[in-house]
Design a protein around this nucleic acid. Sequence first.
DNA 1: CGTGTTATTGACCAACATCAAACTTAGTGG
DNA 2: CCACTAAGTTTGATGTTGGTCAATAACACG
Lengths: 243, 243
Amino acid sequence: MSSKLIDALTLIADLDTQSQAALETLPLRVVRVPVGAELVREGDHPSECCLLQQGFLCRHKELDEGKRQILSFHLPGEIPDLQSLHLQTMDHGLTALAPSTVAYIPHGSVQALIDENKQIAAALWRATLIDASIFRQWLASVGRSDAAERTAHLICEVALRMRMLGLTEGYEFDLPLTQTELADALGMSPVHINRVLQDLRAKGLIVTRGRHFTIGDWHQLKRLAKFDPAYLHFRKPIPGDFR
Amino acid sequence: MSSKLIDALTLIADLDTQSQAALETLPLRVVRVPVGAELVREGDHPSECCLLQQGFLCRHKELDEGKRQILSFHLPGEIPDLQSLHLQTMDHGLTALAPSTVAYIPHGSVQALIDENKQIAAALWRATLIDASIFRQWLASVGRSDAAERTAHLICEVALRMRMLGLTEGYEFDLPLTQTELADALGMSPVHINRVLQDLRAKGLIVTRGRHFTIGDWHQLKRLAKFDPAYLHFRKPIPGDFR
DNA sequence: CGTGTTATTGACCAACATCAAACTTAGTGG
DNA sequence: CCACTAAGTTTGATGTTGGTCAATAACACG
């Protein structure tokens, strides 16, 4: 079985078969977690990192008065807290937003692999740099674009990332998020995101049935979002229907 | 002469004398640049990275209609575009906000050092991870706190970073930024940042003479900002006057 | 079914943006 | 050293986006 991790890493970096085989040897402690499980907390000093195999995670910071900011979403194949390898103290939390399967990998095993395989070292570093690139994009969105553009942009991003990871076909996907969670990611209120989504639906840009999304008009959505996937730094070509 | 780079890296990572010596061997192409010089542009494919020796840089994304978001500020000793080592295409620009001295280092030389010295490899990776941590903090600030808190937070961050790098003593420092640039960093309008600054001055939290800042009341400022320096991941203790 | 969560709606309001003008400062050339 | 200019800062008036509050409706699940 070709692992999700390899799918995700080969999407952004070159890995020869030897490196891929080496990745398969990583010892995994597989755990199923329910919605709402906080895998890592702000302030923790993890000794393992966390490969998502199935499900949907987010990283988040809690602020006072119940406010929180979701910092990123994570899809199968990603290692959201790879940074803990070099940053001892977590500056944010990691939580499951859908029922998920997670594989814990001891830092020592990852470090050993990095030490002996430069290709893997580069790929993992690159993965954390792409993380950072996505933070920059979100920062620019939250700082400088309005609610509709920001929302559309997030939908474009998630849809494309899912597609590139081979998790979906075409324009349909599940976004296992409440509107409140969307709001926390986009820096807005639940009420307002509700209205924005209604707007996007009214314009035919998206269709939703519960948490199942269909993109109704990719080109319009992309244009509204001013979405340019360059910041995702994929090494594989983007499929025609998502150009 | 102990280099700024070593000051900055030993602030966040352990480097033995051998590693420090190795860093000193990096070939530097030193250039002086005026205010406004764009060292790297969005879309570029740099073959060198850029060590700031003197001055003040920022990274930024341009949006349409003249809008822009400043993504980070950079102080002497930092390598703002270290990421270009692994991300071929720049997803943002790098510009001097003060007259600066910059040392270009070929990617090849950095990579060679990384390949042969694990301590340096770890330190540089860690530096990019701290970058990312700061993006997360900015994202949370822009997304979830109000103008005054955000502004105070930025002032705390820059003041502390300067102090930790040994660029300043006490509570005084120069911030070579126009209010428009501050606004672009904080995701607000120039008019509004002006009013927020007036407020902070009126409360005695800061004193400004032109672009020279003095922190009038660190504890109050820190409290208003809800500033917790953990996200900067320093390995050295924070001086008493900045606790 | 009943209960808790999530989505939706409407009324109202606050924070912040925009616009335009006046004022200050720093830099430049005569 | 002064006048001139351009850049940056400050102010006031006004507008808008999006937040808050509170109630209702729709689901989801045991």
